[in-house]
């Protein structure tokens, strides 16, 4: 099976560690992902902001770039939902483009979804063997990207990480409410967007967790950026990073709630082990 990593422009720019973690975890699961070099942006900013024709051009690129692969995996819930739910509708019924879009939609998966439904990984087999290392593992809580709703994957991250023994996974109160990111909404209505983000951060703080696992790079950047401005101690990572850390594939970062705010907020970039 040829598997491609659909990196997304946002993760390449803002979350290289999440991509690294995705590669390492997939390899741990016996899949060696490839990274098609020509990929750029899936077109979501255009499709969400009134430029469907421009977005369709990028959608066509995506279909061509990922044509050789059997499966396409991405750490971004919302980019995944664009490919799955929006692409086909951009092209005329019966057209070759529509057919290509349907093919890509059928083989594109969000990272945890791919592990769970395609590789059929039993998360308990991902439990770290060295429990003493796990004891140092962070207390986590998960915020799922809203766009996982349409994929019927909203709320699936926390149970998976819990079964995979990724530290202590606490429930995030009011998880279903949007974090307020919303792409360009975050800059068009910054006050509303931030107010929602603040509410999410308050819920995060109430759990006592040190790490927030966000299944979308946009949500992660929004929440981490708000927290940094306010001096809230939080480390925002992707589900892949949580698993990679737990398995020791990526060096664990400073996560102790007792560590200084600075240390908790600006952890060292993980380095590959072995």
């Amino acid at each position: 099976m040829r598997v491609a990593l659909f990196t997304t422009c946002l993760a390449e720019a803002l979350a290289p560690r999440a991509l690294k973690a995705a590669v390492l975890v997939l390899e741990h699961c016996g899949v060696a992902p490839e990274v098609p070099l020509a990929q750029t942006c899936c077109g979501q900013p255009l499709l969400s902001n009134g430029l469907p024709n421009d977005g369709a051009k990028l959608a066509q690129r995506m279909c061509e770039i990922f044509a050789p692969y059997d499966a396409v995996v991405t750490p971004s819930g919302s980019c995944c939902s664009v490919v799955r739910e929006k692409y086909a509708g951009l092209f005329a019924e019966g057209s070759r483009e529509r057919a290509n879009a349907n093919v890509l939609a059928a083989k594109t998966f969000e990272f945890i979804e791919f592990l769970e439904t395609q590789l059929k990984i039993d998360p308990t087999t991902l439990k770290p063997k060295d429990c003493s290392a796990n004891a140092r593992c962070a207390t986590l809580t998960c915020h799922d990207a809203c766009h996982l709703r349409g994929l019927h994957r909203h709320g699936c991250t926390a149970p998976f990480l819990r079964s995979a023994g990724c530290g202590t996974v606490r429930d995030l109160p009011d998880m279903s409410q949007c974090c307020g990111f919303g792409g360009m909404f975050s800059t068009q209505f910054p006050e509303v967007s931030s107010a929602l983000g603040d509410e999410k951060l308050a819920h995060f703080t109430s759990t006592g967790a040190a790490v927030l696992v966000a299944s979308d790079t946009g949500c992660a950047a929004h929440l981490a950026g708000l927290a940094h401005r306010k001096g809230v101690a939080i480390r925002v990572i992707s589900p892949a990073e949580a698993i990679a850390e737990s398995l020791g594939l990526l060096a664990r970062e400073v996560t102790s709630a007792n560590a200084s705010t600075e240390a908790a907020m600006h952890p060292k970039n993980g380095t590959e082990v072995g």
Binding site: C146, H147, R149, G150, S176, G180, F181, F185, Q188, V192
Partner: peptide
Amino acid sequence: PRASSLCGA
């Protein structure tokens, strides 16, 4: 139309 994060709720 712009006052939405498109969260789908």
